[in-house]
Amino acid sequence: MLYSSDEYRAYCSMRVGLTGGIGCGKSTAGKCFAELGWQRLDSDEIVRELLTTDPDLHSALRSRWGGGALLSEGGANRSFIAGKVFHDAAELRWWEGQVLPRVRAAWQGALAADPAADWLVEVPLLFEKDLSDSFDVTVCVESPESIQLERLAAKGLDREQSLARINNQMPVMDKVRRANIVLSNPGSFDFLQRQVQRASEMLRQLPPNS
């Protein structure tokens, strides 16, 4: 059967993986894509939901780190977990082994439930965990380290905490070299928004699974 381009796009989705360094503006770029009609999934939001509601994850945290890993009012203690994983490579590996399969299952389930939609999935460790094959196209948001540090400071992290998080990820320039599309975010929202607009237009001209 032959389809027009519009009909073809109605039956086939585009799946875009969005990544970048911490503090580079992935969430801001993701929201810009959502405003253009993309279905957006934020892996960090999925993690926050798991930390609040997943009893199996809570049990694993208690077994590994004791009661301090959980809050008395319910849910996981994010500050406690950050203190464990960002200064100990073995604990970070264990933590990622618990969380990443759950996150991946969540966004794979969402994509399967609406296969005709154009999806934008924010995956901070997309290249670190070799997940690029899950997407048709990869997009990386990059910023200078000085801008990353400013944004993380605005979230309450001191320089040492910020650098620990930055250094636990693949260098941003390595992500840039691996991505199909790069968005530069040195600080101007309008500039980033215009880049997202152009990227969205280009992506929607591509055949799915290209």
Score class of each variant (00 low, 15 high):
M173A: 12
V123I: 05
R102M: 07
R151K: 06
P208D: 07
L111W: 13
S4F: 10
F127P: 06
S4T: 11
R194M: 04
A154T: 05
D114I: 07
N167T: 05
L36T: 04
I46P: 15
V172S: 12
R9L: 04
V121W: 01
G68M: 05
D158L: 00
I147A: 13
D118Y: 00
Q39M: 10
I147H: 13
P207S: 05
L92P: 15
L18W: 02
N168M: 04
N77W: 01
A105H: 09
G66A: 11
R104K: 14
Q193G: 06
Q108K: 04
N185Y: 13
W107S: 08
R159I: 07
R198K: 14
S200D: 13
V99K: 05
G30F: 01
R9M: 02
R204T: 00
S146C: 12
K31N: 13
G37Y: 07
P144Y: 03
L18A: 02
G20F: 02
F191V: 06
S72R: 14
L2R: 12
A105V: 09
K31F: 12
E7T: 02
N168Q: 11
E160L: 11
W94D: 03
K26M: 03
W94T: 03
Q197V: 10
F80G: 03
A117G: 06
E49R: 15
R198A: 08
R159H: 11
L70D: 05
